[in-house]
Simulated assay, not measured.
Amino acid sequence: MPYTPREAVEKTGFSLDTLRYYERIGLLDSVERNAGGQRVFTDDDLNWLAILRCLRDTGMPIARMLRYAELARGGDATFAARAELLEEHDREIEIKIAALRDEQVRIREKIRWYRVAPVLDLERAPATSVGVHD
């Protein structure tokens, strides 16, 4: 099924400028055009864009995305290299998730402190200053 650029934008979440950029740098190739010169996206294009969205959203640099695209264009002979590239990216994601979990612990400790601190202040505060807290 063919999709207009607007439909491709709606379905992928990418902006039209991003789609043009991806096409210009070679991440998105062979996008068909209609008789009027307008891009026409296929289901295959949208599936490829979904993969690119995943890679981008998980922090893969453009240069590595380009390498992945190059490998994908190489056909079945590049399966091992693609798997290796994705495994490396997966390891990097695991490291980022672990770091975020560590930071989340700090944030949750601070939240607990903010939930307990006003109660402690009220218990210690003189009767005349109740309600005056930062």
Rank of each mutant, 00 (worst) to 15 (best):
A80K: 10
R124K: 14
D134E: 09
A81N: 08
L16E: 12
P2W: 02
C54S: 03
D45E: 02
I111K: 08
R108V: 06
S129Q: 09
R20Y: 14
R101V: 10
L120T: 08
L28S: 11
I107L: 15
V40Q: 10
D90Y: 09
R20W: 11
V31P: 00
R64M: 07
E92F: 07
A99T: 03
K11Q: 08
A98N: 10
A80L: 06
E23L: 03
I62K: 09
T78M: 04
Y68H: 13
S30Q: 15
F14S: 04
R101Y: 13
R91V: 03
R82Q: 07
C54Y: 01
P126G: 12
F79L: 12
R20L: 09
G75P: 10
D44S: 12
F41P: 01
E10T: 02
E92S: 11
L28P: 11
S30F: 12
R112F: 13
E87C: 15
K110N: 00
Y68I: 15
I97A: 07
D134W: 06
D121N: 15
L100H: 05
L27E: 04
R101L: 15
L122M: 07
I51T: 06
D45G: 00
E70V: 11
R82C: 10
I95P: 00
L120W: 07
W113R: 11
L19C: 02
E88Q: 14
G74N: 12
A72L: 07
Y68M: 14
A127R: 02
F14M: 04
K96C: 05
I107V: 15
A81T: 08
R124P: 05
E103C: 07
A69N: 06
P61H: 14
S15Y: 05
G13D: 05
I51Q: 08
A117F: 09
I51K: 06
T12Y: 10
R124Y: 07
